[in-house]
Structures are given as structure tokens and as C-alpha cells.
């Protein structure tokens, strides 16, 4: 009965086949799909075009404008580039920016890896695991400024740490406020969370049997970590560092508030130059910073192909 109903209602396949050659339907569907696929892509493309490509092109364009006295001349001129490229200050800024970013990335990498490893391997209680992870992420629910401002009562001259040191009869310190050390330390604490999460997820995804196999074959915990877990967690680590570096390159407030403005980053110089209306130099520095950021991200991609994660 069922067969009868179905053949009655539908057009016999053979009838279609007589009109359309074999495989034509599949091709039609595929073509329609690719048309729809393009349509689906359009909004995203439009957003990327408006929000990323256009501003970037504009910035590059502005870097070729000229300040004629106080007048901004919209032209093609290499003056801003020449003044940036022949001034040792900017090389120093670029170098110290790169240095700061690399140091902070190494620190957040190491700290994030150990914290993520601890969470994934040593905390067996699922609820506790979730709670600890939440605690790591919690500071991110407060405003950036508040987190930075709390630094002072903690690390300041008359802050908590010096108070405790004083009570304990130890010499007071000025380690963690208004110098490069302080800036790096603050940035590390701000951005380590980007690494803890992804590393934790990557490590949790490793099949326990793989680790058990490694151990039962005689590998030490260290060898297992180095040869089995670390390579498998590399994706999480790189994703975390990737995001941390995006924030790091743009962070100028930490340098001002914790670094005391004595160790500026390129981003700080950009903000200063733009703030005083010197757009061409600001734009040139922005292009340079963008170049450095792309370089660092390219290195990440060499270490680990992020596309594998998608």
C-alpha cells in the first residue's frame, strides 16, 4: 500500500530523468547553494569592509597627508613617514613595544599554561573546576579602570603590601608602581585569563586513555606533558596568546596609569599625536604598529595553524 501511495503522489523519477540529463539536478542544486552561500556571506563581508578594511585603508591614506603649519593637507606626501623613519625615538618605541609584548606573552603563556594544567589535571571535582575557572574569569566582569585603579592601594607606597612589609619589619619596596616592571606585571595579571581558559579546554579534551597509554609505556609525567599534552594543548595556548596580544598592542592606559607614562608604548604615542591633531604622524605610527602586530600574529600562525581549530 505504501509503495502505491508514494508512487501515485510523486512524479516518477524516470519522467524527470527523461527531461534532464543525469547529474544535472545535483549541479543545479549545487549552483543554487553557492548562490545562496554568497548571499549568506554578504552581511559579514559588508561588516568587515565597513568596520575593518575601510578604516585601515583610511589610516594608510592619512599617513600620507601632510600638516602644513596647522593646516591638514589631504594629499600624497611621504613627510610623516620620513619624519617617523629617521627619528630614533620611534625605533626605540617600536622596540620597547615589541619587547613589552613579548615579555608579557611569555609570562601569560607560562602562567596560563600552569594554571590551566592545574585546573585540568589536579582538580578532579567538576564543580570545583568550574568554580576556580569562574574565579579566574571573574575580574573581567569589572571595568578595566577599576581593576587598574585598585593597583595603587595594593602596591602603592602606603599600600597593603608595604603595610605588611612594614609590620613584618622588612624594607618597603617600590617595585610595582610607576616603572616598566610594574607595567609588565599589571599587563600579565590583566591578560593571563585569555590563556587559562583555552588551555584548560584544550587539556580537558585530551582523552585520558592517551595519557594513561603514555604513562603505562614508561614515560614520566614530565615527558608525557612535553610530548603528549603540550602538543595537544598548543591550539589553546596559541588561541589565548593570540587574543592577549590583540589587547596588548592596543593597551596604552596601563602604561599611563601603572607605568607612570615613563615607558610609553607605540599605542600611547599614537594617542598623544592624534590628541594634538597631528594625524599624519599618528596614522603612520598606527600603520607601523599594525605591521608589528601582523608580524607577531604571523609567527603564531607558523607555530600553530589556527585554522585547524575552526
Amino acid at each position: 500500500m505504501q509503495t502505491a501511495v508514494s508512487t501515485e503522489g510523486a512524479r516518477p523519477i524516470s519522467a524527470v530523468a527523461t527531461v534532464r540529463p543525469e547529474g544535472e539536478i545535483d549541479r543545479l542544486i549545487a549552483r543554487n547553494r553557492s548562490r545562496t552561500a554568497w548571499l549568506l556571506l554578504l552581511p559579514a563581508l559588508a561588516v568587515i569592509l565597513i568596520a575593518a578594511v575601510a578604516p585601515l585603508v583610511t589610516i594608510v591614506w592619512v599617513s600620507f597627508w601632510r600638516l602644513d603649519g596647522l593646516n591638514l593637507v589631504r594629499t600624497i606626501d611621504t613627510e610623516a613617514w620620513r619624519s617617523v623613519l629617521r627619528d630614533p625615538t620611534f625605533y626605540r618605541l617600536a622596540l620597547s613595544t615589541l619587547q613589552t609584548v613579548v615579555i608579557v606573552l611569555v609570562l601569560v603563556g607560562v602562567l596560563g599554561l600552569t594554571a590551566g594544567y592545574f585546573l585540568a589535571r589536579f582538580v578532579t571535582n567538576r564543580k570545583l573546576q568550574a568554580l576556580l575557572l569562574m574565579l579566574a574569569i571573574l575580574p573581567f566582569w569589572t571595568s578595566y579602570l577599576i581593576r587598574i585603579i585598585t593597583w595603587q592601594p595594593l602596591f602603592g607606597n602606603s599600600g597593603v603590601i608595604n603595610f605588611i612589609l612594614g609590620k613584618a619589619g622588612l624594607p618597603q619596596m617600590e617595585l610595582f608602581l610607576f616603572n616598566q616592571r610594574a607595567m609588565i606585571f599589571a599587563m600579565t595579571s590583566l591578560y593571563v585569563v585569555f590563556v587559562v581558559g583555552p588551555v584548560f579546554w584544550a587539556l580537558s579534551r585530551i582523552d585520558p586513555e592517551v595519557i594513561a597509554a603514555s604513562r603505562s609505556l614508561g614515560a614520566s609525567a614530565w615527558t608525557t606533558f612535553r610530548t603528549v599534552e603540550l602538543p595537544l594543548a598548543r591550539g589553546g595556548l596559541v588561541v589565548g596568546l593570540f587574543f592577549a596580544s590583540i589587547f596588548l598592542f592596543g593597551d596604552y592606559a596601563t602604561g599611563r596609569l601603572i607605568g607612570g607614562g615613563t615607558n610609553p608604548m607605540l599605542s600611547d604615542a599614537i594617542s598623544q599625536y592624534a590628541g594634538s591633531g597631528q594625524w599624519p604622524v599618528a596614522a603612520t605610527l598606527a600603520v607601523v604598529l599594525f605591521g608589528i602586530a601582523i608580524l607577531v600574529l604571523a609567527i603564531f600562525m607558523r607555530v600553530y595553524d589556527l585554522r585547524k581549530e575552526l
Binding site: S158, L177, R256, L257, G260, G261
Partner: peptide, 24 residues
């Protein structure tokens, strides 16, 4: 600056008040 004269360079009113109150 090389001789370490400056502790920091301040950038806004609120920050300056905090720094004074904290004795920085």
C-alpha cells in the same frame, strides 16, 4: 630624567588627586 628625578608623568585630574592623597 636620567638621574631619576621624575616618578611619573600624570595625565588627568582624578589621577593627580589620587597620587597626592596616596603620597606617591
Amino acid at each position: 630624567k636620567q638621574a631619576g628625578q621624575f616618578r611619573l608623568f600624570w595625565s588627568d585630574f582624578g589621577q593627580l588627586v589620587d597620587l597626592l592623597v596616596a603620597g606617591e
